[in-house]
Design a protein around this nucleic acid. Structure first.
Lengths: 352, 352
DNA sequence: TTGTACGCGTTATCAT
DNA sequence: ATGATAACGCGTACAA
């Protein structure tokens, strides 16, 4: 009834065959310096002959108390992580840092059964990425009582955190457009509530969102745009972060009167869709419409025109998260730098 | 000295506290139907009070023989997997299929210490993705004796395999260009040998390559181009699969006499770089130069002009791999469909 | 519905 | 340098 994990002999089988104790065989695999080379080679030889390929991971884990694996918990169905270049860069950063330390990386998605998987995951620690404040996964992670680092959101007391200054970064995006003379803005927002809603929204909906990153960026945008009075600002929420949603958002935004001359997209994927919509509607970028993205995913620079966007280095988030997990000190909150990359998709408002 | 995995009470601590046997507590967690709801709730309550968050994963694994995790072994340093959209789509497909089955996904990269991580990974099976024929990781996987599926390469006797018909697909790409009247070709190839070489290469180097996918595509290209005699075909190898390498390749190819009027790039990332190089050299695509990619990563359609490319559905590779892993039957070799997407980057050779 | 008792395969400690 | 043995924490017959 143990069909899967190790259908072969055990360490003590090998010990018996060689005529030594199991401790010695264990040493042969884990501490070569503890026995003569001759004996070690003999043991390894017999092991090979018996199809014994090394200590059973589960037993080793039970005995040592270490899994040598860290778990990455992602706020959404996990395959989403691989569709967005920014998210997948983050996981890449984690993977790189893990690899360097000889740690495995266990991927755990969101969704209904995520909680039970979190509860039974054989890991030494968790990195929680972009989890909505009210997600059950968060409680499941906390229950495990393992070292944990939270990335982006939510910021929890007593738990190390890695992120960027979303509010300030967004504010800089908006300020850039305002400085170019724009007065009528469309904002293409990421998900605020998990209710599948797509469309215009107001500040009440925004205030109640458990999605901290989206809320903060929104705040930043609005702060930069608030001061003057002859502004118009239209808010649109996308239930998914993809190009298609960006396109739909922009199509609707372009119908608003007065027509926005500048779009703030909360991610580059949404920005790509925005640009596509503009093209389909025969608006030229940046002549008729300026667009600013967020993330600086690699395609941003291959677009025509190249996309002006707020760069964040998602790989670094991952790397830093792993590093923080290693340190068992008091909680650290780390803000990583961002920077506005001004490229071809933004231009001064043309004179009338 | 068990600091990490579970710093709290055990199942039998809970049992003692409640005044029942450990078996009953175990049932409370794993088989709710085996005891009264009343007792179960009492047990769960006490467990919570004792900070007991459920069975220790290692002990459970040792006892059941299942990890409920499958390992994905990637042929290169693992963070590469998250830079190429095609590779990351593959992992996404695996992740999705795993999630549906309640399985975890352990990511294992290539590189020097990968073998030791493979040997100690707590998994029920492996999916090996795009591993060079001579990689030590492959032996490590085989040694574990666990159910294994190989994706793309290498095709091994007795081991289920998922892939596409690389040779035929490449041939179709090349035929498309030939049919458009092109006679002078540049081929931008993926890595053939792990020696860091970048530059022109010949068929000897190609024949000896352990990278099956690259070899097969090359064969396909050449087959389609062989028949006529007034052709010129120049081969360039990129040590890395990224846009920068594609740019370098194309810059060099464009200096060849007679100048190629068509480029076959073995990946879309290389194709993006190729198009960039053409732009920098003031060649217009597709007027002066036709380009065909491979993969159909999502940016392909956002480029200007949109990239003609061979579509493969990498997510499906991942999904199918997991499915095959579930079936313990005899080895199955599955070829997934591909299809040439003709977009704006290819055009008939202009008349002279 | 609940309890008993053994086995899972290893590592670590202490002795030799 | 090597051996004996006690944990490690849980699942699961089987018995009650």
């Amino acid at each position: 009834m143990k069909p899967s994990l190790q259908a072969r002999g055990t360490l003590s089988d090998v010990a018996k065959a060689v005529g030594v104790s199991s401790a010695t065989v264990s040493n042969a695999f884990n501490r070569p310096d503890q026995l003569s080379n001759q004996l070690r080679n003999k043991i390894l030889g017999v092991a090979r002959k018996l199809n014994y390929s090394g200590p059973n991971p589960a037993a080793r884990m039970l005995s040592t108390g270490f899994a040598n694996v860290i778990g990455v918990v992602y706020g959404e169905p996990i395959h989403f992580a691989f569709q967005d270049p920014a998210d997948s860069a983050f996981v890449g950063g984690v993977a790189e840092a893990c690899g360097k330390r000889g740690l495995g990386l266990l991927l755990l998605g969101g969704g209904p059964q995520s909680a039970s998987m979190i509860r039974t995951a054989a890991v030494d620690g968790f990195i929680a990425y972009s989890i909505p404040k009210d997600d059950v996964a968060l409680q499941a992670v906390a229950d495990r009582g393992l070292p944990t680092v939270i990335v982006d959101q939510p910021v929890l007391p007593g738990i190390p955190n890695v992120g960027i200054d979303d509010r300030k970064s967004a504010k800089i995006c908006a300020k850039h457009l305002r400085d170019l003379g724009h007065r009528h803005f469309g904002i293409v927002s990421l998900l605020l509530h998990n209710d599948g809603y797509r469309g215009l929204f107001d500040r009440v909906r925004m205030a109640g969102s458990p999605h901290l990153v989206a809320s903060l960026r929104l705040q930043g945008y609005l702060e930069a745009l608030k001061p003057s009075s002859d502004f118009s600002i239209t808010l649109w929420e996308c239930p998914l972060n993809n190009e298609e949603e960006g396109r739909i958002a922009c199509e609707n935004l372009l119908r608003i009167k007065p027509r926005p001359t500048a779009i703030l997209a909360m991610s580059d994927r949404l920005a790509v869709g925005t640009m596509e919509a503009a093209r389909l509607s025969r608006y030229l970028i940046p002549k008729d419409l300026s667009v600013v993205g967020f993330d600086d995913i690699s395609v941003a620079k291959w677009l025509t025109p190249p996309l002006t966007t707020m760069q964040q280095v998602s790989e670094d988030k991952g790397r830093v998260a792993v590093e923080l997990l290693g340190r068992r000190k008091e909680p650290i909150h780390k803000k990583l730098p961002t920077r506005l990359l001004i490229r071809g998709s933004t231009a001064p408002l043309k004179a009338r």
